[in-house]
């Protein structure tokens, strides 16, 4: 039987889901988008009222702003087992947010290319696979 896939930290993206999306906040007054969710709008000119901020699921498409390859294993508490070098990128979503994430590949990437959000496993134990959100190039 396949292991259960469990987000390393809950509440950051919709799960379980066939089409996972990042869970963000949007200000109903000025449209500012923030990730992860926040209690207040981050715009300095906007009223600090909890009622102004709503939860939104971000589009799972974006453009690659920049990226790199992490060639060495970061120390704990990050876990990626077994360790293999991985890509990390900044992606511009359709809502105007620039967001970080691990990339499913670092081959054939070009700045500005369309990326789609998915999930991927970083490590596992006897019961579960532990996952985070990742971005993959759209062919």
């Amino acid at each position: 039987m396949a292991k259960k896939q469990v987000p390393i930290i809950e509440g950051l993206f919709t799960w379980p889901s066939d089409k996972p999306q990042l869970i963000a906040s949007r200000c109903k007054k000025c449209g500012t988008v923030m990730f992860p969710k926040t209690a207040f709008c981050a715009n300095p000119d906007c009223e600090k009222s909890r009622e102004n901020v709503e939860v939104v699921n971000l589009s799972n498409k974006g453009k690659l702003w920049t990226w790199t390859i992490q060639n060495y294993a970061p120390p704990a508490p990050f876990r990626k087992e077994p360790f293999e070098p991985y890509g990390i990128g900044m992606i511009d979503t359709e809502e105007g947010l620039r967001v970080l994430g691990i990339l499913t590949t670092y081959d054939n990437l070009k700045l500005g290319m369309t990326m789609e959000m998915t999930t991927g496993k970083l490590y596992e134990d006897d019961e579960n696979e532990y996952i985070t959100w990742m971005w993959k190039p759209v062919a």
């Binding site: 992490q70 970061p74 959100w133």
Partner: peptide, 10 residues
């Protein structure tokens, strides 16, 4: 912490 464990960004 959230950034580090979810994105592995050093």
């Amino acid at each position: 912490y959230i950034r580090y464990v979810m994105t592995g960004e050093t």
